[in-house]
Design a binder for these strands. Structure first.
Lengths: 199, 199
DNA sequence: GTCTATATTCGGATAGAC
DNA sequence: GTCTATCCGAATATAGAC
């Protein structure tokens, strides 16, 4: 379908250049059509962008669910390390991640509310999934810490990897991620005793 | 001077709406002049934006230097906690932080290289300052960990606070910061023995 | 469903009077 | 140094032929 070719080109252009930096003419040019032809598939630029955003969060949430399922029997640290690695890898091979990261950070102002609403729903849904995983880890006595806090601190790791990746220094992103991970995991383990004592 | 009024309005508008989302007409309107008058003070929009960016990094670097100096005799954890608190507080009372965070994350494409060059220099300079502080902490035996890694992991905390603040949930930013901080600090302490054994 | 042609608006920028 | 007037280009969008 022609709509999918348009979506594909638009996704990577929005990911690289943002909403305002991407013209319909540029999208059309990528796939060898005229900009006016886009209106046969989408009501306009807003419609195209918001379709991509909705679709992206749906896909990303489903991917998270499958990821969790796949690592359900793994140890917590194996799962979390895989989650970080997957984040890093997807950033380079799939523009979906870059697309939503950049465009939720600095959305076109006239779409701010809609973008933010979708983002918050996504964050909430993913958080629920991860907290469940941390609760499981507690019940299996892999860790002995407040699951909400462990989850928040882990999602902070992901945030920071995102920032470094977008800033463009791949090597630094990896180095920083490893340093953060080591301290994070040490911290999780070290907090065990406090939790057990009911703090 | 008129140029400073323009800068003030431009800074907060760029911070809220980004480069493309901010028109010269809008900036002018804020301070009760016409957009053409801006050209008496700046060569154009690019010039105004880049002036602000350069100035911002200069100011922010100097502020970091003074901050470090002010906390020179404090303990490492007091200093780091103050650094996080300052970050949080400035975000709400000064648009400089928001300005560079948002506009380095998704810069106008035609200024990408210039923005990135300035950002990297700033990151490098601040990093040097903080690493020195971590090295001092090691020599004072406050911690016993690789200073580069401790610094990277701490800057990851700052990244994540930035993300949460920009996403707009103040309360979540604070909660997440506290969870991350606790685990981070536990992790730093816990890593002591390894470092002492020369790992 | 893609094209040509065209309408319209907006934003950056220049010229020149005061 | 601010104003009015004006230009130019770019971008979204619509109408209608094929």
């Amino acid at each position: 379908m022609g709509a999918n070719k348009i979506k594909g080109a638009a996704l990577s252009l929005f990911a690289e250049r943002g909403y305002d930096g991407t013209s319909l003419a540029l999208i059309a040019e990528q796939i060898g059509i005229k900009k006016q032809s886009i209106y046969a598939h989408f009501k306009g630029k807003e419609d195209l962008f918001l379709s991509l955003l909705t679709e992206t969060f749906t896909i990303e949430l489903k991917r998270e669910e499958q990821f969790l399922e796949h690592y359900y029997t793994s140890s917590l640290d194996a799962f979390l390390k895989a989650s970080l690695a997957s984040f890093l890898s997807r950033y380079n091979h799939d523009s979906r991640l870059k697309f939503w990261l950049k465009n939720t950070f600095l959305p076109p102002i006239h779409l701010y509310d809609q973008v933010n609403a979708q983002l918050n729903r996504y964050i909430h849904d993913v958080e629920s999934l991860y907290i469940k995983r941390f609760e499981t880890a507690v019940s299996k006595q892999e860790i002995a810490m407040n699951p909400q806090q462990a989850n928040l601190a882990f999602s902070a790791l992901l945030d920071s990897v995102a920032v470094e990746l977008i800033y463009g220094d791949q090597q630094r992103a990896v180095t920083k991620m490893e340093a953060s991970w080591n301290i994070y995991w040490q911290g999780l383990i070290a907090t065990n005793s406090d939790f057990e004592r009911g703090r």
